[in-house]
Simulated scan of single mutants.
Amino acid sequence: MAPPAPGIKVNADGVPDFDALPLREGDPPYSAWGLYGADDELGTLNRLTDERVAAAAQGEIRTGKRISLNWPLDAQPGRAFFQRATFRQEMMAKAPLAVNDDVWTFNSQVSTQWDGLRHFAYQGARRFYGGRTQKDIHGQGRDEDGKEGGKGTVLGIHAWAEQGIIGRAILIDYHGWRESQGVAAKPFDSFATSPIPLEDLKACLAAQGTEVKFGDILFVRTGFHLARSGKNPAEIWDHHEKVPHPFGGVQQSEEMLRWIWSSFAAVAGDHPTFECWPPWTQVKEWSLHEVLLSGWGCPIGELFDLEALAAHCRASKRWSFFLSSEPCYVPGGVASPANAVAIF
């Protein structure tokens, strides 16, 4: 993990105070470009130092209980949100031997996945993390022998695959907390632009008795998978027809940004967009996707299956755990299945 660049003032956690953002005059809102040098591709994953990961393993792995956080790759058959290609499997018998192969084709964001740094730019500035452009991403670079003409891989998901997204994680069981409060008192609709305010996330943490530590990986359970399972195929089809798709999620606010910046190495949820969607109904100048991905290099996880995790957290009265997530090693990849497991 890279240390902060020389000349940048950092606090006790090794990062600049939120009020120092953006770090350079003229950069997009709240961006931290240059914090770890001009060529950095890890962003907030630089917070997952060897020492923090080791401490997380020692402090969180107690029983050996393991829970998958992955929604099946084929969970959206026929048609997927955001017009993404669905999962297809081709099975091949390798006669005359009793042997089989298969070929998978799918969009990397069709199920549980991490948004990578090539995914979403600052829309006004049209710049990705560190100031990279579409030309930087789609233009020609050097091939593996150093010759001109090879495909460029800048900001590819492979940079995260080399060390994984691994460390202490916490679950905010927002859906469970809403039920305990009485859902009428805390209305939320997974299939509408319903924002979850920071005060509710903090109230849920307090009710759980969950401590946030710097460098944690945040998970928010909204109950999306339960809401989706309660809809019939025609209702799901009708939602596909709405462009842009409306979804509930974390509220866009400066307070939310402050909290994420001061606490987390990555953020994720069970819903398709993490933040409520479309985002610009809350804040006109920016979205969380823009600031997190392109401003800070912070992974955004979506469509995680948190149902079994939430049940275990309730039963054990413990909402922190060790996360091991290994993105696929695809040089120049935009996003990746999470391949994630929680370990208690």
Rank of each mutant, 00 (worst) to 15 (best):
Glu302Pro: 03
Glu275Cys: 12
Glu285His: 00
Thr273Ala: 12
Phe274Arg: 00
His289Cys: 02
Leu303Val: 11
His289Pro: 01
Gly297His: 04
Pro279Thr: 13
Glu285Asn: 00
Pro299His: 01
Val283Pro: 00
Phe304Thr: 09
Gln282Thr: 10
Glu290Ser: 08
Gln282Trp: 04
Cys298Val: 05
Leu303Arg: 14
Trp277Phe: 15
Glu290Met: 08
Leu288Phe: 08
Val283Gln: 10
Cys276Asn: 15
Pro278Ser: 12
Trp296Gly: 01
Glu285Tyr: 00
Trp280Thr: 14
Pro278Val: 14
Gly297Lys: 04
Phe274Asp: 06
Gly301Asp: 01
Trp286Arg: 05
Gly301Gln: 03
Val291Cys: 09
Ser287Pro: 01
Ser294Ala: 14
Gln282Ser: 12
Cys298Ser: 01
Val283Ser: 04
Ser294Pro: 12
Val291Asp: 07
Leu293Ser: 08
Glu275Thr: 12
Glu302Ser: 08
Leu293Tyr: 09
Pro279Asn: 12
Ser287His: 01
Trp280Tyr: 15
Trp277Asp: 13
Gln282Tyr: 01
Val291Phe: 12
Ser287Thr: 09
Glu290Pro: 03
Trp277His: 15
Thr273Ser: 13
His289Thr: 08
Leu303Gln: 14
Phe274Trp: 07
Leu292Arg: 03
Leu303Pro: 10
Trp296Glu: 05
Cys276Val: 13
Ser287Gly: 06
Gly301His: 02
Ser287Asn: 01
Gly297Asp: 03
His271Glu: 07
Gly297Ile: 07
Trp286Tyr: 00
Leu288Trp: 00
Gln282Ile: 06
Trp296Pro: 01
Gly295Ala: 06
Trp296Phe: 05
Gly297Asn: 09
His289Phe: 11
Trp280Ile: 13
Ile300Lys: 04
Leu292Ser: 04
Leu293Val: 09
Cys298Lys: 00
Trp280Pro: 00
Leu288Thr: 04
Cys298Trp: 00
Leu292Pro: 05
Thr273Phe: 10
Val283Gly: 02
Trp280Arg: 15
Gly295His: 11
Cys276Gly: 14
Ile300Gly: 06
His289Trp: 12
Glu285Gly: 05
Pro278Glu: 13
Val291Thr: 08
Glu290Tyr: 05
Val283Asn: 07
Cys298Ala: 02
Lys284Thr: 11
Phe274Ala: 03
Phe274Tyr: 08
Trp286Ile: 02
Trp286Cys: 02
Leu288Pro: 10
Glu302Ala: 09
Trp277Leu: 09
Glu302Arg: 12
Ser287Glu: 08
Ser287Ala: 03
His271Asn: 13
Phe274Ser: 04
Trp280His: 15
Trp296Gln: 05
Phe304Gly: 10
Leu288Ala: 06
Pro279His: 14
Lys284Arg: 13
Pro279Leu: 11
Cys298Met: 07
Pro279Ala: 15
Pro272Ser: 13
His289Glu: 07
Pro272Asp: 14
Ile300Trp: 00
Thr273Lys: 12
Gly295Arg: 11
Trp277Lys: 11
Val283Phe: 01
Gly295Asp: 06
His271Phe: 10
Ser287Leu: 04
Glu285Gln: 07
Leu292Thr: 06
Thr273Ile: 02
Gly297Trp: 05
Thr281Arg: 15
Ser294Val: 05
Glu302Gly: 04
Gly301Tyr: 05
His271Gln: 10
Glu290Thr: 07
Lys284Cys: 04
Lys284Asp: 10
Thr281Met: 14
Leu292Val: 08
Trp286Ala: 00
Gln282Lys: 07
Glu290Gln: 09
Leu288Cys: 09
Gly297Met: 09
Glu285Cys: 04
Leu303Met: 15
Trp286Met: 04
Ser287Arg: 04
Pro278Thr: 12
Ser287Cys: 00
Pro299Ala: 06
Thr273Asp: 10
Ile300Cys: 01
